[in-house]
Design a protein around this nucleic acid. Structure first.
Lengths: 109, 109
DNA sequence: CATATATTCAACCTACAGGTTGAATATAGC
DNA sequence: GCTATATTCAACCTGTAGGTTGAATATATG
């Protein structure tokens, strides 16, 4: 009944359609119609998926006339990354690679 | 129908009972009975949760007589962390902190 | 104003999730 | 061998997830 943040975020991201929507939104905000276009399912189904993402806080909606602009909110993904990071001591073998990745990425900024 | 790794892992982790099981297993492997003990639900319910975790690859089972030893397999969590890391450019404000954290952690090794 | 577009709302369907209880199975210990 | 323990299996129930279709709502546009 509490349905806290992680419950909703994990559940929302367990659907491949919704992960694909999130991925596309990472490249920029989008209307619901444009999000729905590439999928082989009804517009209404995609609209529902967007609502699930919204309820989970993964996405924010701003209305502009009849169009709804859907934008990614990265906070819940951050929370998930934070949750996963508690298991880092199980993946010490990957720490070096990650650190290296972060360093080279930093240089590029 | 494909039900790939991320689908199952995210779905499994969307349940707070299962996240608690994972958390406890991070401190060491456990029998199903011991996992079930603190929960306010039937043993069978917990047994089912363990099976969901197992099917998602988050947990491995080794039989020793009548007892089943359940141990964490960190690979799917790694996959989730990897998935989440693709959204790092949305959290550049946290990159410095993470990098610092990794560096100090490295020093401690 | 009339119509086309963008979107949600509502009802419905089927499948699965998470819980229960009651067996069945297999091993351990007296 | 008998009984207690550890566990799954199977059947069942209720609720929700993900999809559909059809209508309602609101805003653009000729």
């Amino acid at each position: 009944m509490t349905t806290p943040v992680l419950d909703l975020a994990f559940a929302a991201l367990s659907d491949p359609t919704r992960r694909e929507i999130v991925q596309r939104l990472a490249k920029g905000a989008s209307r619901v119609t444009d999000l729905a276009e590439p999928f082989d399912m009804s517009f209404n189904a995609v609209s529902k998926h967007v609502k699930v993402l919204e309820r989970a806080g993964l996405v924010r909606r701003t209305r502009a006339g009849r169009e709804h602009r859907i934008a990614l909110d990265p906070e819940p993904i951050r929370r998930i990354a934070g949750w996963a990071s508690h298991y880092e001591r199980f993946w010490s073998d990957r720490l070096d690679k990650l650190e290296a990745f972060l360093k080279t990425n930093k240089r590029r900024d």
